[in-house]
Amino acid sequence: MLSAILVMAGIALVLGGVLGWAAIRFRVQEDPLVEKIDAILPQTQCGQCGYPGCKPYAEAISKGDADINRCPPGGEEGVKRLAELLGVEPKPLGEGLEHKPKSVAVIDEALCIGCTLCIQACPVDAIVGAAKQMHTVVADECTGCELCIQPCPVDCIRMEVIHEDIANWKWRYPVIPLKKVA
């Protein structure tokens, strides 16, 4: 009995020593996971996930606080890629979240009173203008987050879906008629 205890204790001691040494010898500083998650997120900064931006959401996913299906702008595709990165099964977008076609905000310049509230709301500084001056959205930089719509006191901002034209046209997935009949 005593020898059994001694043997097990010995093994445990040796292994503990080796592991302790390895822990110091092979120490790894930081977890690059957040960056990788953040790279997949669409950077809309819309906050629909419940976090104040893409980076905080990435941090929450990395910590395991948030699910991967909270990002509507990323859509199913984004969820799939997150699932792949994290080695989990993809799932549909969360309750009440839906993927919308990409749009940009447009300010009706006739109604704008130049209050600057939307400028403060814009997460990517895509609205230009100054107090009491008319404001304009820089379409190239607008992420379509819709955060400027709610603060506008005169409801002069609307979202416009980006239409297809020759510059952004994509070849379609070829239709093979000889697939399933059903």
């Binding site: 059994a4 080796v18 592991l19 120490r27």
Partner: peptide, 26 residues
């Protein structure tokens, strides 16, 4: 002490895996 075989093997394997994990991580 043959009855300790499975137990001690598992402990050793766990130790080696732990070591490998740290090694690969680095």
């Amino acid at each position: 002490l043959f009855y300790l075989r499975t137990l001690s093997f598992i402990v050793v394997i766990a130790g080696i895996v732990g070591f490998t994990e740290m090694f690969i991580r680095k």
